[in-house]
């Protein structure tokens, strides 16, 4: 730790950075560049190419130009999938992040049994993709399931939470909020990275808890909030597993949980229209990249970096 002590001693001495770190960057990025060239690039480029073809998976692709892209805009289920996905993303991502941040703040420090709480709260995220979990959802959210039994106790008539087209998507959003484990963990890690010296300084200045939170915790946590926002957004647009499990892969009832990726998967692997599926994927990429770019632009106004 000697280095860090030295660093501390010389803290605050700003120096002019060298013009560029090209060589060092080449070294540090070598694995990443190799990965890009060897692993990532080909599937990316190939799927772009395939999006301009009629490709059944079972036979060689045929170039058909932009037909796949124009076809999307005449496909009613494509629009249904878009609607479902956008609704899901814009409702569940903010809710999930809020839940994750709230729990992370509660579980940050100063309590007995923290490890157990954190682990318990992370558990649903562990179970998410298990085959067995489909049966559980039926028993919890079914017409005669746990939730409706509780409601009946209070004299409320329940519904089929995952089997009724009007409620299935809402249930999935609640389920998603419930698996806030991953962003919670990242928030926890982020909270722990805020140097205590800042709080000490603030205390000396007589700042209260609320002011410390608003003045230190929140601004210093913004890079992590930003990270979670960007990644959860990217992830939510590609949501697949939960709808797949709950609807048995159909996106049902009546396409009410037809997530974009689920529809794309059906097209690629059940209808053998991988060309169309690839076009849908690239359309999704444009949408998500656009939103991410907006996110990065907007981040100028609210994300605080210490560097």
């Amino acid at each position: 730790m000697a280095v860090i002590q030295e660093v501390a001693r010389t803290r605050g001495t700003k120096t002019e950075r060298r013009k560029g770190d090209g060589k060092a960057a080449a070294v540090f990025l070598a694995p990443w560049f190799a990965g890009l060239a060897l692993i990532t690039a080909f599937p990316l480029v190939a799927s772009l190419y395939l999006s301009f073809t009629d490709y059944s998976l079972l036979a060689a692709p045929n170039w058909i130009g932009i037909d796949n892209y124009t076809r999307m805009f005449t496909d009613a289920r494509f629009f249904q999938a878009l609607e479902v996905t956008f609704t899901y993303v814009f409702v569940s991502v903010p809710l999930q992040l809020a839940a994750a941040l709230a729990l992370a703040l509660v579980l940050d420090k100063g309590m007995r049994g923290l490890a157990l709480y954190r682990s318990a709260f992370y558990l649903p995220s562990l179970l998410g993709g298990s085959v067995a979990i489909a049966i559980l959802w039926r028993q919890v959210f079914g017409s005669d399931g746990l939730i409706n039994q509780v409601l009946a106790f209070f004299g409320v008539q329940g519904v089929g939470w995952v089997s009724h087209p009007d409620y299935a998507l809402g249930t999935l959003m609640v389920l998603n909020v419930w698996t806030f484990g991953a962003p919670m963990v990242i928030f926890l890690a982020g909270l722990r990275q805020i140097p205590v010296m800042y709080y000490e300084a603030a205390s000396i200045d007589g700042a209260g808890k609320v002011r410390q939170f608003l003045g230190i915790t929140l601004p210093l946590l913004t890079p992590i909030v930003f990270f979670n926002l960007v990644l959860q957004l990217i992830g939510a647009f590609q949501s697949f597993t939960q709808a797949y499990i709950v609807s048995g892969g159909t996106g049902g009832p009546v396409d009410s949980t037809l997530f974009y990726t689920l529809y794309l998967y059906q097209k690629g692997f059940a209808s053998y229209e991988m060309g169309y599926a690839s076009a849908m994927a690239w359309f999704l990429l444009l949408v998500v990249a656009g939103m991410t770019a907006v996110n990065f632009l907007a981040s100028k106004f609210w994300v605080f970096y210490d560097d």
Partner: peptide
């Protein structure tokens, strides 16, 4: 059964 239950039973396979 009603529509919701029919969907649920359908998704539950032979065992359910």
């Amino acid at each position: 059964p009603d529509a919701s239950r029919s969907v649920e039973f359908q998704n539950a396979g032979p065992e359910g």
